[in-house]
Design a binder for these strands. Structure first.
Lengths: 127, 127
DNA sequence: CAGGATCCGTTACGATACTG
DNA sequence: CAGTATCGTAACGGATCCTG
């Protein structure tokens, strides 16, 4: 997908190329720090905007809304607005979102597993 | 890891907080589009700089070198320079790199699996 | 409380030119 | 061929304003 397909521009591959560019687009959306951290923070829970802001350490108001809109647009999170005052907006991972989360979990697990390994690699490189 | 730890600044948690910030740093390094695409492109193979540039579609010379340095520094890729002329530089995933690749594979698989799902979600959202 | 809009500095990125 | 350096532009991202 992600790597180069050796399509020679044959007409019958038109939809294949379209799917490929769509996949690339989705990958670009999803493969960014804040999106992945938000997905990880949501987990199995339903969280309000403010709660999410507390959970995802370091995220700004702007980045949170921006990424939440993107995730909602791609159908990874469900956004439920309660028409109260003050407003209450809850976010939950959808099924595709939860499916992606298992991959994010793997990355988080990997990070911890190789923490020491990476730290010493850095030490060697920086010398 | 990634989500907020409720550490109250107790001295005995100093190293825990350090590990956490390191984990965050690594996560930020790794959770970016180009890094993940490079890891995916390398796979089990050993590739030269130019080959990698062809495999990772759309990557610029600059982004490729920049991300390769970063991955090398973190010990995810091994860089082997052959002292010939013209120079020949080969890149290979290390064991930690291959471990991370399984997670990247999962994301790629996910992308394809939910492609149609996401496309229709977008259609609904944009309406 | 959620979130849009604006301003503004910082970084990412591509293009180009130059070295061993 | 691989890599560094520079430069100009575009996108990112944070702070701060305002609205329902």
């Amino acid at each position: 997908m992600v790597t180069k397909q050796l399509l020679k521009g044959l007409p019958e591959n038109a939809d294949l190329r379209r799917a490929d560019s769509l996949a690339r687009e989705i990958f670009s959306d999803v493969a960014n720090k804040w999106a992945l951290l938000i997905i990880e923070a949501l987990g199995e829970r339903t969280l309000r905007f403010g709660e999410l802001r507390n959970e995802v350490e370091g995220v700004s108001h702007k980045m949170l809304t921006q990424n939440l809109r993107m995730l909602e647009r791609n159908g990874l999170v469900d956004r439920k607005v309660h028409p109260t005052v003050p407003p209450r907006v809850e976010y939950t991972l959808t099924e595709p979102g939860r499916a992606l989360r298992t991959a994010v979990d793997a990355i988080c697990g990997w990070t911890h597993q190789y923490l020491g390994h990476i730290e010493s690699a850095r030490g060697r490189f920086d010398a």
